[in-house]
């Protein structure tokens, strides 16, 4: 999923300060699962904002809603009525959702309420960790199912580097050395002999380096 964290309250307050009516929009997908921008978080943030401004003697009117998906035009359309009633939209979705609102409602301010973090998995309740960088040319099949691009701090494809210590990365004892994990997996799969195959320089065009990416599926077109 795409993970996110609520922005610091100070920053949020500054976004909302100049408006008297805002629409606070959550998203039912990833940000709900990582408890950053779902229905619950919309309720909490709305309450916190109202209290903050009431305290200053200002009445901020907040329309609260949560869409099934903020990254899909058909759901964004549902907001048309409420967007018409407000001065600005505060989005609790990931960056994709914020941009979809901006694209659809061209004359309305939209502000992100969360910082979109990474594509990750839930390691345990309340802990999410980065797993994928969306490089566009997956190597997991030859790295034992562990991604060196997302999980090695230097995205080294022929690791581990000289900083790997006790299974941990040189940048922090809290970070696993991806290449230790890869090597452990290779061993348990009986693929030790494959380790010495050099992985050549990558073509990063499939990644962000090739410019903004699109997927076009003619078979899906209406």
């Amino acid at each position: 999923m795409i993970t996110a964290e609520r922005k610091p309250m100070e920053e949020i307050v500054e976004c909302a300060r100049n408006f008297s009516r805002v629409l606070l929009v959550g998203c039912n997908e990833c940000v709900t699962v990582c408890a950053a921008g779902g229905r619950k978080e919309v309720g909490l943030l709305a309450s916190a904002l109202r209290m903050h401004f009431m305290k200053e003697g200002k009445n901020l009117e907040i329309i609260e809603t949560t869409l099934e998906r903020q990254c899909d035009p058909e759901y964004i359309d549902e907001l048309a009525d409420s967007v018409g009633q407000v001065d600005a939209v505060l989005s609790m979705a990931c960056g994709c959702g914020v941009q979809e609102i901006a694209r659809r409602y061209k004359d309305k301010h939209v502000f992100p309420m969360v910082n979109t973090k990474f594509m990750g998995a839930s390691e345990r309740q309340g802990v999410w960790a980065e797993r994928c960088q969306g490089c566009g040319d997956c190597v997991l099949g030859i790295t034992g199912g562990i991604c060196p691009i997302a999980r090695c701090s230097k995205r080294i494809l022929n690791g581990p580097c000289g900083g790997s210590t006790g299974g941990k990365c040189e940048i922090s004892p809290d970070v696993d050395c991806a290449w230790q994990l890869i090597w452990d997996r290779m061993k348990s799969l009986g693929q030790e002999d494959r380790y010495e195959e050099v992985m050549g320089a990558r073509d990063w065009r499939t990644s962000r380096d090739g410019g903004p990416r699109r997927i076009i599926r003619e078979d899906m077109a209406l």
């Binding site: 701090s153 230097k154 995205r155 080294i156 494809l157 022929n158 690791g159 580097c161 900083g163 040189e170 940048i171 922090s172 050099v198 992985m199 050549g200 320089a201 990063w204």
Partner: peptide, 26 residues
């Protein structure tokens, strides 16, 4: 490959790693 920027005086820098040391040898 070099030490991670975290250790230096510009920990806020982007780290490039277009190649790794083995690929640079190649």
């Amino acid at each position: 490959s070099g030490d991670h920027p975290k250790f230096g005086d510009h920990p806020m820098a982007s780290n490039v790693y277009d190649l790794d040391s083995v690929q640079l040898i190649q």
